[in-house]
Amino acid sequence: MTTIDAVFPEPVVDGSGSRTLDRGLRLLSLVCASPVPLSVAEIATASGLHRSICYRLVRTLAHHDLLERDPDGRYGAGGGLAVLAGRLEPRLQAAARPHLERLAEQTGMTAFVVAAHGEDAVTVLVLEPQTGLAHVSYRPGGRHRLEVGAPGLAILAGRPEAAGERPEVTRARTRGWATSVGEVIPGYHAVAAPVVEADGQCRHAVAVVYAGEGDPARLGPALVDTARRIAADLA
């Protein structure tokens, strides 16, 4: 199971902020990072919080549609997260949407755009293909460290070389696209390309996510082309 420390910063302990709000946000991040819905007991174990505290936080988050309770009483990401994510970087979303739609249909895979926020990569826009038998369901608002997962690696590859960077970043900078397997969600593959804007800055990446077989060598060039188109429309 994903641990809360792996997906969110250290907790507030010095009185500089609201401890309750901090716990709620960390719990929300934990649930959203899990590949499967979690019970309150599982959330309590993974977060290290008392079960009664987790129950109150989960109920509050679900009331605001940030978490969603399934028929088995387990919790996953709620639809309210997509509403919040839809208000993030509207200019990027407007520029990326038509190209992301084309990419999703071209590959038959779920396509998405991430934005760098501090040391994290945040999923801003997700589009699923309208054709094909099956595809991965993925929600906006997901967050992970830039150093893990193809989208984060792609953003780093779009920037100047940094001391101590992962070999995968160096490789992605050379070929133009990054890959990862199971680094954000166990069992899932991702391929991503950096969106380098006219000012030379790389703040975003475009990616596809899939389960099972895929051909990164075929997907990579398609992602590079999509990234260039998005960058041109952002200029």
Rank of each mutant, 00 (worst) to 15 (best):
R69F: 00
R203G: 12
A163E: 15
D22P: 03
V7D: 01
A217Y: 03
G80A: 10
E10K: 14
D22G: 03
R171I: 03
S47M: 12
R218I: 06
V224L: 09
P216C: 08
H63M: 07
A41N: 06
A111Q: 03
E183N: 06
R159V: 07
P35M: 09
R102P: 00
P221T: 08
G108C: 10
V196S: 00
P90W: 07
A82R: 08
V124T: 14
T110L: 07
P221A: 04
V40I: 15
A217S: 15
T60Q: 09
R159Q: 15
S39D: 13
H117A: 11
I230F: 05
Q93L: 05
L49T: 00
V195L: 10
R166G: 07
D215Q: 09
D199P: 06
A217D: 15
H63T: 14
A211F: 08
H189D: 12
A235W: 00
P167L: 06
L153S: 03
P9C: 06
A190C: 11
E165I: 01
M1N: 12
V224Y: 04
V40N: 03
D199Q: 07
I185Y: 15
V58E: 01
C54H: 01
G164F: 09
A163G: 11
P71V: 14
E165L: 00
V113Y: 05
R26I: 02
G48P: 09
D70A: 10
P194M: 04
S18R: 13
H117S: 11
I155T: 06
P71E: 15
E128D: 05
V7Q: 01
R139N: 11
V12S: 10
T123V: 15
L127G: 05
E128I: 01
V122D: 06
T131F: 04
V148F: 05
Y75E: 04
D22H: 08
P90R: 07
D120H: 13
R51I: 14
V184S: 11
V191N: 01
C202D: 10
A121G: 14
E165G: 04
V13P: 02
R139Q: 15
G149R: 01
T123P: 00
S180G: 02
R171P: 01
R228L: 13
A44G: 13
L103V: 00
V224K: 05
E213P: 05
L127R: 14
V36M: 10
G80V: 06
A232T: 09
E105N: 06
L30E: 03
G141R: 07
G214E: 08
R218K: 13
Y75I: 04
P129H: 06
W177M: 03
A82I: 01
I53P: 02
R175K: 15
R59C: 01
G78W: 00
T20G: 06
G78P: 05
Q201R: 15
R145Q: 10
Q130M: 12
H64V: 13
L223N: 02
R97C: 05
L21F: 08
P186W: 02
G142D: 05
G118C: 12
R51M: 08
V124I: 15
P37E: 08
L49Q: 11
R26W: 01
G152Y: 05
H50S: 12
L100N: 02
P221F: 09
L49A: 11
G86Q: 03
